[in-house]
Design a protein around this nucleic acid. Structure first.
Length: 924
RNA sequence: GGGCGAAUAGCUCAGCUGGUUAGAGCGCCUGUCUUACACACAGGAAGUCGGGGGUUCGAGUCCCUCUUCGCCCACCA
């Protein structure tokens, strides 16, 4: 053994960890060594022996710099990926970005507006080129941000939804669905954003509750102006597009009027009174105005009754005679904004005495999810995907347990949505995106969806033109789990090896937009779901529980946190906050309060390493397996057992990585795992409260000795810390890697990032439990010192008496440890006569009574014990009652009853001890 | 309108199938610059588990109800 001074001491390591100096360089080394690159040949899908573990990163929008919500999403994925990589899987976390159709186009249009231009000034090609250029820089920045927070993505497989490769996939999917009759051109009322100038899917038009008005308007009978019908509407401006008023066929009030005509105010056209069950007699007046071109329900009525469908609102949201509306819009209302027109029309109705009354009316109004403009329902021609056939297998996936959704409650939401699914409007009147691959010949009316651009019309040889619209951005996203792996090339190696993947990590907001659709496309094109687990994490919110957003200015820039506290601190705080399904609350006004715990934890790890390197030295240590069990002390056995417990808890919290049978989640496993906060807490408790607070303190004396026991202590210490670093690496990858690299001893990998995940030793013995007694004794002595204000450094002698034989032996054997950790000296037997003493006692299994000398207040101490005794009596009474209860003994689980009995024994003896103490201290 | 979730220490939250004396971090109080760490150490105070009712031998945990907050869905003209 060596007694020379360690070659290196903690002087090498400054007192505090500096993430800035560490993180970037470490990341570069990982990347250079290809640690994050998935190797297909190692997997059992290609003759290798290990399972693949695949996570597809939800591609961030190229427009947005990352906020802490992204940080949360990415951290979860990275923790899982790093965990599985260490656990032996061939882990693939595939990164990429999303071209984000509307969002990106809006950004560029805003830029142009600043220059006093519109996209039409540039023209389509120039606009697309400019957007692509913008995306090149922002997209790159995002990927750098992911690296800064430690994301262990496989950068060799980075993808982009608008890349040539993925565009091929998008086109293939479109053409296949078109050929299968699942994509069709629909003429109907859709959601239209007058600001973005495009149609939106149902999901993109979000409901918002608003305080509105319900206007009651008189429509006079055409043949008898003295009579009329009162209709109720929230949108009077649409009356210009009215083609009928509807009453319920069973509504006696209006039966006689069906078939007659009314005069439409303002527009002054005759429209019929029709009978349709859509009119609800109980709502308003029971009479509905029918505006087929500007209301989805009215459109249905219009179709049923073969009514004309005049469009009276322009794409820009102003009033106008767009189609079939000749003579309906008065000249003074043309080009007037719809909300201004509403005011004017109401005024006019009031003036003409047609406005019966106005009442307040709370209702929800749809808004554009990108710009918040009130959406206008408009009759238009759009491309739709028929969803019912796609939804069926996706429903079955979740019902059967092929794919689970966590937290479980979202499964019901998912099922509910899919059961009522409606067709998906996929065409957008934008320029930024995948162009609809449908071509037309204006000469012979030929039309088809094609994989390759045609030069001429295949039917008549005439010129062809491509559809002007682009596809919903989600039409590329929904293919992500397969397009990123090479689909539609069925021979693609990555596709064969890494599809289907494992876990999808995202926020609940895009369950419908994205998750459900990926499952649908997975079944449609690959015949299987793309993942077996959907983990929906909470939303990042501020302390007022408001969603963090750019507009509210309450966001946190993860890079700020990285700069101030380090990536590990950011990740630690995030993971600690990840209760299953719970939102994560961060305080943007107090980063210190929010992220200091993570930084402090990193510093703690750093200092454990400083101690280890300084006290234990960097000389090689024996592997634990080379040390005979008999050489291990109680403390050694205890910390090794605690390590086993920590490993077991971490494994249980993270849960099964995949269903046991590989395909379907059994009921008992379906909700297990993915408790990242519990995993973090277990690991933290082990390394801080057990390893650092106790084992390390206990080892100090041994490490300073020159006996062979020093080598044992070094071996155990290094082993335990090594395993702790491994357990923590997925959460705090940088500092664990930095420290692990310096650890003396055996290396079973070049990087901790690829080192094997810890396994429990599975050895447990009574000696480990005995250390708990030692710990109890130390704690009790410290409490006494504190209670009696005896300074820590002041030596006191503790006289032990009344101990049971076993406890006495144990305490004698461990007295050096107890003395050291409690700054006390143990002596056996009664104190010298005449010393002013106070009795005290040790807790737990050590039943020894002790005397603590010094100038202590006997009465005060007696009172303390009396209080403790009183409390114990109460608890003991309840316990005795419970154990005397036949119901409990018969019905409770045997192990519960057993532990209660054991407790009774312990408490009873403690009671006797306390009673004796109180008495000996002069108590009544 | 339909559905779902939350309410536990001053703050942010754990507490998984009902069963130790309900836990953690931060904050607070007392002491300590103990040769790894004051971003730390030791000790401590602090909770009628939102209100009410019920089931049970036993309820923070299950059921009903009320209150407050939040989310999702919706063809409330």
């Amino acid at each position: 053994m060596t007694t020379s001074a360690p070659r290196s001491s903690q002087a090498d390591l400054p007192a505090q960890y500096d993430p800035q100096a560490t993180e970037r360089a470490l990341y570069a080394r990982w990347a250079e060594a290809g640690v994050f690159t998935a190797r297909a040949e190692r997997t059992n899908r290609e003759g290798g022996s290990v399972d693949p573990f695949v996570i597809m990163m939800p591609p961030p929008n190229v427009t947005a710099i990352l906020h802490v919500g992204h940080g949360l999403n990415l951290t979860v994925q990275d923790v899982l990926t790093r965990w599985r990589r260490m656990a032996g899987d061939e882990a693939l976390w595939l990164p990429g970005t999303d071209h984000a159709g509307i969002a990106t186009q809006n950004v560029i249009e805003k830029q142009l507006a600043g220059e006093g231009k519109t996209r039409f000034d540039l023209g389509r090609d120039a606009f697309v080129a400019r957007t692509a250029e913008f995306v090149r820089t922002t997209g790159g920045e995002i990927l750098e941000q992911i690296k800064a927070i430690g994301g262990s993505c496989d950068w060799s497989r980075t993808r982009y939804t608008l890349s040539p490769e993925l565009s091929v996939a998008v086109r293939e999917a479109f053409v296949r669905l078109y050929e299968d009759g699942l994509i069709y051109r629909g003429h109907r009322v859709i959601h239209w954003c007058p600001r973005c100038l495009t149609s939106l899917s149902d999901e993109e038009a979000e409901h918002e509750e608003e305080e509105g008005k319900l206007y009651h308007i008189m429509y006079s009978l055409a043949d008898d102006p003295s009579q009329g019908l009162t209709v109720a509407t929230t949108r009077p401006e649409t009356l210009l597009g009215d083609v009928a008023v509807a009453v319920n066929p069973d509504d006696d009030r209006y039966r006689d009027l069906v078939g007659k005509y009314v005069m439409l105010p303002v527009a002054n056209v005759r429209i019929p009174v029709i009978a349709d069950a859509y009119a609800d007699p109980a709502f308003g007046t029971g009479v509905v105005k029918i505006t087929p071109a500007h209301d989805a329900n009215d459109f249905e009525v219009g179709v049923r009754h073969k009514l004309p469908m005049p469009v009276v609102i322009t794409p820009e949201g102003t009033m106008g005679e767009v189609s079939d509306a000749s003579g309906r819009v008065p000249a003074e209302l043309r080009e007037v904004d719809r909300f201004e027109a509403r005011k004017r029309i109401v005024e006019q109705l009031r003036d003409e005495g047609q406005l019966v009354r106005v009442e307040n009316h709370r209702h929800s109004v749809r808004h554009c999810y990108r710009c918040d403009t009130v959406v206008e329902p408009r009759l238009s021609d759009q491309w739709f995907v028929k969803m019912k056939p796609l939804a069926a297998p996706a429903l079955d996936a979740v019902r059967s347990g092929r794919t689970r959704i966590l937290p479980e409650r979202w499964e019901a939401v998912y099922v509910n949505w899919l059961e009522g699914i409606r067709d998906w409007n996929i065409s957008r009147q934008l320029w930024w995106g995948h162009r609809v691959p449908v071509f037309y010949c204006d000469d012979c009316n030929w039309q088809d969806a094609l994989r390759e651009d045609p030069n001429e019309c295949p039917t008549c040889g005439g010129g062809v033109r491509q559809d002007d619209d682009v596809l919903d951005t989600w039409f590329s996203s929904w293919l992500w789990p397969m397009s990123t792996l090479g689909w539609p090339d069925e021979q693609s190696r990555d596709l064969k090896v890494f599809y289907p993947g494992d876990v999808l990590v995202t926020a609940p907001e895009i369950l419908f937009f994205w998750v459900a659709r990926m499952i649908m496309s997975g079944y449609r094109f690959m015949g299987d779901a793309p993942f077996h687990t959907v983990y929906l994490h909470g939303t990042a919110r501020d302390t007022q529980h408001r969603k963090m957003s750019k507009s509210l200015g309450n966001g946190i820039d993860p890079l700020d946190v990285v700069a101030q506290y380090g990536a590990d601190a950011l990740r630690w705080t995030i993971v600690s906050s990840l209760g299953m399904g719970a939102d994560a609350i961060f305080d943007p006004a107090d980063l210190e309060k929010t992220f200091a715990p993570g930084r402090n934890f990193a510093t703690k790890l750093w200092n454990i390493a400083r101690f280890l390197l300084g006290q234990a030295g960097e000389d090689s240590v024996r592997p634990l397996a080379a040390i005979a069990e008999s050489r291990l002390t109680r403390a050694d056995r205890w910390i090794l057992e605690r390590l086993d417990v920590a490993i077991a808890e971490c494994d249980a919290a993270l849960g099964p990585a995949r269903p046991a049978n590989g395909t379907t989640w059994p009921v008992q496993e379906r909700q297990r795992g993915m408790r990242l906060n519990e995993y973090a807490e277990s690991a933290r408790r082990f390394v801080w409260n057990e390893l650092a607070d106790w084992y390390l303190e206990v080892s100090k004396a041994r490490l300073q000795s020159e006996s062979d026991d020093r080598e044992v202590a070094r071996a155990v210490l290094v082993h335990a810390f090594d395993r702790a670093l491994r357990l923590l690496h997925p959460i705090v990858p940088f500092i664990t890697e930095a420290l692990w690299q310096r650890l003396p001893g055996q290396r079973d990998s070049e990087f901790i990032a690829r080192a094997p995940w810890p396994k429990a030793r599975g050895i447990s013995d009574a000696a480990a439990a005995e250390f708990e007694t030692v710990r109890d004794a130390v704690v009790r002595l410290r409490q006494q010192r504190s209670a009696f204000n005896i300074p820590e450094r002041r030596p006191v002698t503790v006289h032990v008496d009344g101990a049971s034989q076993t406890a006495s032996t144990l305490l004698r054997e461990e007295s050096a440890t107890i003395e050291r950790l409690s700054w006390s000296r143990l002596a056996w037997g009664d104190p010298p006569a005449g010393t002013p003493n106070a009795k005290t006692a040790l807790a737990g299994g050590g039943t020894a009574a002790m005397l603590l000398d010094g100038n202590v207040d006997v009465a005060k101490e007696r009172a303390r014990f009396a209080r403790e005794l009183e409390e114990l009596e109460k608890q003991l009474g309840a316990l005795e009652k419970r154990l005397a209860n036949p119901g409990f003994v018969q019905k409770a689980k045997p192990e519960v009853v057993g532990s209660e009995r054991q407790k009774l024994t312990q408490w009873t003896s403690r009671r006797a001890q306390l009673a004796a103490l109180v008495q000996s201290l002069g108590g009544a």
